[in-house]
Design a protein around this nucleic acid. Structure first.
Length: 297
DNA sequence: GGGCCCGCAGGG
DNA sequence: CCCTGCGGGCCC
C-alpha cells in the first residue's frame, strides 16, 4: 500500500477514535484567531542588535505576563534581565491561587546559573504563573519555564504518569482536534549510528518497534490509570499542521488527560510498531487559538 | 534544502 | 560515567 493511502487510513482510524471520546462539548462555538502581531521572523532570531530582541517578542498571551520582567519563560530573552538577580520570593508572594506546596528553586542570577527555573517541573498540573496560552520561541524556553523540562524529548515521565508532553508534529498520522488528539510514544530509533559511522543524533527515523517498556511510554500508559493531568505544549513543526498548531514556537495549551493507550503499526519505513495515546483536554480552560491555516484546512 | 554537531535534562 | 530524546544552530 502506498504511504499516502496508509496515512489516510491511519488518520481516519485515529479521527474515529477521537470522535468516540465525546469532545464536542469542549469545543467553544467561536474559536479565537491566533493573535499574530506581524509575521516577525522566528528565523532571524540571531539579530545583531540586542535591543531589538524585545520587538521580536511574539504576541499571544505571553504579553499578559510581560509586564513583569520576572516572567520565567522570558528570562532568557530579555536583555534587561542579563546579570540581574531575580527575587523569586517576591514572585511567589504575588499571589498564586494554589493550595499546593511547590518546591521552589533558590534565588539565581539570570543567565549565570544552570537552573533559571522558578518552580520544579516535576509536579502534576499547572505551573504557577504560567497561563494557558503562554508562548515561547524554543523548547529550551519551555524548559526554563518548567512547563516541559526536556529540551528534546517529547515526554516528561513521572512516577504516577507523565508530567508533560510536547506536540511537535513528528508523526504524520497523528490527529490533532485541539481539544483531543492522538500522540505517538518514544523509542524505536537508532540514535547512535554504526560504530564506524557514529552519528550521535538526537532524533532519527524509526528502526525498531516501540514498546510500553520504554520509560516514557510506560508513564503515559500509567496516566491512563491514574488520570493525572498532563501539561501539553503545541509546537509549530509538522508537515500537515493542524489549525491548532502555533505558527511559530511553542504554546502552553493547558491540561489534558490520557484516555487510551494502544499499540499500532506505525507510519514508517518498515512498519515498525508504535505506542499510541489519546488525549482529551480538561474542561474549563481558555479556548485554543487557531492559526490562519495556510497549509491544510 | 540536507548534513553535521552540539548543549541540556533526566535517569541509570 | 553512560545512555536517550518528535532541538536547533550553522555550514554547505
Amino acid at each position: 500500500m502506498s504511504y499516502a493511502k496508509e496515512r489516510e487510513q491511519n488518520i481516519a482510524r485515529n479521527k474515529a477514535l477521537l470522535d468516540g471520546l465525546g469532545i464536542a462539548p469542549l469545543k467553544p462555538k467561536i474559536e479565537p484567531k491566533e493573535n499574530l502581531r506581524k509575521k516577525v521572523a522566528a528565523k532571524k532570531r540571531k539579530s545583531p542588535s540586542p535591543e531589538s530582541d524585545e520587538l521580536e517578542e511574539p504576541p499571544k498571551k505571553a504579553s499578559r505576563l510581560a509586564d513583569d520582567s520576572n516572567e520565567p519563560g522570558r528570562a532568557r530573552r530579555s536583555s534587561r534581565l542579563a546579570g540581574k538577580t531575580v527575587d523569586y520570593k517576591q514572585e511567589q508572594d504575588r499571589g498564586v491561587p494554589e493550595l499546593i506546596t511547590i518546591k521552589r528553586v533558590q534565588k539565581v542570577k539570570v543567565g549565570q546559573l544552570k537552573s533559571k527555573r522558578t518552580y520544579d517541573p516535576h509536579r502534576y498540573g499547572h505551573i504557577p504563573d504560567v497561563e494557558v496560552g503562554t508562548w515561547w520561541a524554543t523548547r529550551e524556553d519551555c524548559s526554563t519555564a518548567s512547563v516541559h523540562a526536556p529540551w528534546v524529548s517529547g515526554i516528561a515521565p513521572g512516577p504516577n504518569g507523565a508530567y508533560s508532553i510536547a506536540l511537535s508534529g513528528g508523526y504524520d498520522d497523528d490527529v490533532d482536534d485541539g481539544y483531543a488528539f492522538t500522540f505517538t510514544g518514544s523509542g524505536g530509533r537508532d540514535l547512535k549510528g554504526t560504530k564506524t559511522a557514529p552519528k550521535n543524533l538526537r532524533t532519527a527515523p524509526q528502526s525498531s518497534d516501540q514498546t510500553f517498556e520504554d520509560r516514557n511510554n510506560a508513564a503515559l500508559q500509567k496516566s491512563v490509570d491514574t488520570q493525572k493531568p498532563v501539561r501539553v505544549i503545541r509546537g509549530f513543526k509538522g508537515k500537515a499542521r493542524s489549525k491548532y498548531a502555533p505558527s511559530e514556537g511553542y504554546r502552553y495549551d493547558g491540561l489534558y488527560l490520557v484516555k487510551k493507550a494502544w499499540i499500532a503499526k506505525g507510519l514508517n519505513k518498515g512498519g515498525f510498531l508504535v505506542c499510541k495515546f489519546a488525549f482529551v483536554r480538561m474542561p474549563g480552560q481558555e479556548a485554543i487559538p487557531v492559526n490562519d491555516g495556510g497549509d491544510d484546512e
